[in-house]
Simulated scan of single mutants.
Amino acid sequence: MATSTGRVTGTARDRAAGADGARGRGRPKKAGPVRRSMSQHWYAWAMVAPVVVVTAALIGWPLVRGVYLSLTDATEATMGRTIGVNVIPSTYGFTGLDNYVDILTSGLFWDKLIWTVVWTVACVGLHYGLGLGLALLLNRKMRLRSVYRLMLILPWAIPSFVAAFIWRYLYNSDYGVINAMLKAAGLGAVGWLDDPTTAKLAVIAVNVWVGVPFMMVAMLGGLQSIPGELYEAAEVDGATPWQRFRHITVPGLRIVSSTVVLLGTIWTFNMFPLIFLITGGGPGSSTEILVTYAYREAFTGIRNYSGSAAWGVIILLLLVVMALVYRRALRKQGEVW
């Protein structure tokens, strides 16, 4: 009897398991998040796909190629090339991190880095301060405000190479407009681009002239997004202009400020055309920043492609680290972006 009962119980259990298995096989599997996104937003993916492909071709492949070259000893003499019908194969080899060790242990790198940091901090600080001041002025009601805005935006609209050539002419020691004005005022001429100190001040001034309009436009947009009722309520409560600026304007511009300061830092850190076209990195190499020296390594003298690639990778890593630190600092302050 017990055996019969056990056999019946086992048969029922097997049937139940078989039914559950059949139901499991008949039930469709849940799609993963990627597949679900592709099925629901296929049109958006189709529109983005060409941009992704072009970006990968124009940025991804050169980046991978540059990282690879930085780990070799590739120079103009060891790179493969074709001369007429003769094909000369490449003879460079893998050297690992030797290029990075050579760069980071040289005093040249740290000299360039210090000047690049000074150049970036000075330019971005002046960009932000002057841009915010001009935005505060243009945010008020005044006559011909649109004309002033147009005139102040013009430096930003001029291409960088055009601005560089204009200012190089203005700084010319013999027939430059600036020295002509100094002579007319009874002062002596200044060799703006002949002395390391004046050359550094000259390129900073040009970059500030070019970059302030962007900051001004961004700050002006941020000011116009702050509700006017806040200023009216603060004025009714007896707040001074400085208190209104400190407790309303500055917090209201925090998100805009954090974004434009980061963008301005990245752009200024890599501002190649102004320095290269105005001073060529000179006199000597006193105004040369990291990116201009990397260019010099790759395209002047005996072209050191591997060394230039290593400089470029180091610059990229510096900017990535700086952006991550900056983003983390903003998160601690409660900013989300």
Rank of each mutant, 00 (worst) to 15 (best):
G107W: 07
N172K: 00
L138R: 04
L137T: 06
W119T: 10
R143S: 03
D174P: 03
S146W: 13
A157I: 11
R168A: 00
A122T: 11
I103F: 08
I114M: 11
W167K: 04
R145W: 02
M151D: 03
S106T: 04
R149E: 11
V121Q: 00
S160K: 12
S146H: 09
S106Y: 00
I158C: 09
G107Q: 08
P155E: 09
Y169A: 12
V147T: 09
L132G: 05
A164L: 10
V147A: 06
Y169W: 15
H127Q: 14
L104H: 07
G133H: 09
Y171I: 03
R145G: 01
Y128F: 11
V162S: 02
A135Y: 11
H127N: 15
I153H: 09
L126N: 01
S160V: 14
L154P: 10
Y175A: 15
L136M: 13
G125L: 03
K112A: 01
I166T: 12
L170C: 08
L138M: 06
Y171S: 02
R143A: 06
I158H: 10
L130Y: 07
I153N: 06
W110T: 08
L126E: 01
L132R: 04
P159A: 06
M142D: 00
A122Y: 02
L144I: 07
P159S: 08
S160P: 05
L170P: 02
V147Y: 03
N139A: 13
L137D: 03
Y171F: 14
K112M: 09
M142W: 03
L126Y: 03
G125V: 05
D111Y: 05
N172M: 00
G125W: 09
V118P: 04
W115D: 03
W167E: 04
L152R: 12
M151L: 15
V147W: 08
V124I: 01
A122H: 02
H127W: 14
V121N: 00
V117C: 05
L150A: 13
C123Q: 07
L144S: 10
G133F: 13
Y128D: 06
V117I: 15
A157M: 14
